[in-house]
Nucleic acid binder design. Structure first.
Length: 493
RNA sequence: GGCUCUUUGGUCAAGCGGCUAAGACGCCGCCCUCUCACGGCGGAAACACGAGUUCGAUUCUCGUAAGAGUCACCA
């Protein structure tokens, strides 16, 4: 059994979006689930489209997600170089080999001629197909043109009749009429190969067993097969994947910032949650479990779970899943990721920064209440600065409070705190809670009639992360008292 | 336009001839509760359409419709 080898072959022409990343993931998983190798190859045969920095994005994304390649740029194996522009001579050799075999031919048509062909084809409302003008050029003409240094390309000589069938691991057998196949260019006039040609040559030379790519290549795959056959090379297993969609009609594109992996990270999504979610977009495991680490996926991933139809990227579900990842994360790691953010909230508000123990409590308080890391500041801002609020907040039917009860309740609470220094000395949520329950009972009030007004006074918000006593603990005795007094003042007016 | 592919709830999806058609997100309700959240329980919600094949089709075949891809010296 041949060792499974897959490759991720991005072209450095833009930023890496979620769709690219998912392709890389599947390629990686197919290799790893079979104990194989995953390679990275850079397809930069189009010098005009090179984008500065795009390569770093590829490297960084793979690094951040833990998708490690076994061979590739900077990690040379036996099949290097792994950057196509550095393999120039290889393609030319193989293209000429194809010419010798009679499966390809030199074409000296000018761009102008092709242009006019194209426009007349378009006028007919049909797609463009090369008219094979140079397909049967006499040997001596070819030799003369070559000797004269006339620019040329090498085209694939498609069979004029019959059909070509290929098998795709997800789509099954697909058959097309050979006469619909264009004599596509293999080697461009600049001496570099086209994607279609470089791909086949490199995949063969690099021992790739599974070709994984978007299904937009489905229709050019017969041409690949013909190429493999002309060379007498073994045809790899094709795995075409349906695209990830932005909505019903549009593919996810890098245009829309949020489609990029790093944009999501910047918005507070965790790499492992993103990876987990996009893996499920277009692939489904055999059971009902949805949470997988990369390592676990390496064991359970199977090509048979890949789906044929496009999947719409649902940020809501990603957000939920990200929240689950946050909840399941161990506290230590969560704190290391968020303490800085928490501290910054106080600094930005020009408020006194609490000591690290309190900072940790704040972070942990918020841990089960956020879905993305970016939600933290908005959730805790009130701890730094008490927001202005409406007294209506004190009115709550279910808590059985209104303005009057709240005013009375806050006064009772204030008095009770002042009369009991022991509470101040043992200022923690549990103790405060027990103390206030007692206060409520003594005054013939329901727990909620003490706690709701307190939570309101202390936060100025209808909803907060944590209850009255948790917030009081974090704010500390002095600030809590200050806010209680402030509430009393508001209610007194 | 030619060729190719796709089609199960709003979304992701299981299903591979016989099921009350899974599960998840979202939504709604109830419970828990010092607010919110977490958690628990429950609910509404789908086989694009039409012919076949078959004792029986979501599942197989063929049409139709709707979407998508492709038809470059781009990948």
């Amino acid at each position: 059994m041949k060792k499974t080898r897959t490759r991720f072959a991005p072209s450095p022409t833009g930023y890496m979006h979620i769709g690219n990343l998912r392709t890389a993931l599947y390629e990686y998983l197919i290799a790893k689930s079979n104990g194989g190798d995953f390679l990275l190859r850079i397809e930069d045969t189009d010098q005009e489209r090179y984008v500065e920095g795009a390569l770093d994005v590829v490297f960084n994304t793979l690094k951040a997600t833990g998708i490690e390649y076994d061979e590739g740029p900077g990690k040379e194996g036996d099949c290097g170089p792994y950057i196509q522009s550095q393999r120039r001579d290889i393609y030319k050799k193989y293209a000429e080999m194809l010419v010798e075999k009679g499966a390809a031919y030199y074409c000296f048509c000018t761009k102008e001629r092709l242009e006019s062909l194209k426009t007349s084809d378009e006028a007919l409302g049909t797609g463009f197909n090369y008219d094979r003008h140079c397909r049967e050029l006499p040997q001596d003409v070819i030799a003369a043109n070559l000797a004269a240094g006339i620019p040329y390309v090498i085209r694939q000589k498609m069979p004029l009749s019959g059909t070509t069938t290929f098998t795709d691991a997800v789509y099954g057998d697909i058959t097309v009429e050979n006469k619909t196949l264009d004599d596509q260019v293999l080697l461009k006039s600049d001496g570099l190969p086209t994607y279609n040609f470089a791909n086949v040559v490199d995949d063969h030379l690099m021992g790739i067993t599974h070709v994984v790519r978007g299904n937009e290549y489905l229709s050019s795959t017969p041409k690949y097969n013909l190429l493999y056959e002309a060379f007498g090379w073994e045809i790899p297993t094709y795995v075409h994947c349906a695209p990830i969609m932005k909505d019903e009609h549009h593919k996810l594109s890098k245009r829309n910032g949020d489609a990029s992996f790093f944009d999501l990270v910047a918005k507070g999504y965790l790499p492992e949650a993103i990876l987990n979610y996009i893996c499920l977009l277009g692939w489904s495991p055999s059971g009902n479990e949805e949470f997988y680490t990369l390592k676990e996926l390496e064991n359970v991933f199977s090509i048979s779970g890949i789906s044929k139809s496009p999947a719409i990227f649902d940020i809501e579900k990603l957000t939920w899943m990200n929240g689950e990842y946050i909840k399941r994360m161990d506290d230590e790691r969560f704190l290391s990721m968020t303490l800085g953010t928490v501290e910054k909230v106080f600094k930005d508000a020009n408020a006194a920064v609490p000591d690290s123990g309190i900072l940790k409590k704040i972070a942990l308080l918020v841990k089960t209440r956020i879905n993305t890391l970016a939600e933290i500041p908005e959730k805790i801002g009130f701890l730094a600065v008490l927001p202005d609020y409406d007294n209506e907040l004190y009115v709550h039917k279910k808590m059985k409070t209104d303005r009057e009860i709240s005013l009375q309740s806050l006064k009772v609470t204030e008095d009770a705190f002042e009369a009991s220094p022991s509470v101040k000395d043992n200022w923690n949520s549990q103790a405060i809670y027990e103390f206030l329950i007692g206060v409520a009972e003594k005054n013939g009030l329901k727990n909620s009639q003490i706690l709701w007004p307190l939570r309101t006074a202390v936060s100025g918000l209808p909803a907060t992360p944590g209850g009255a006593t948790e917030l009081a603990e974090i704010l500390g005795y002095d600030e809590t008292m200050r806010r209680i007094k402030d509430g009393i003042k508001r209610l007194t007016n």
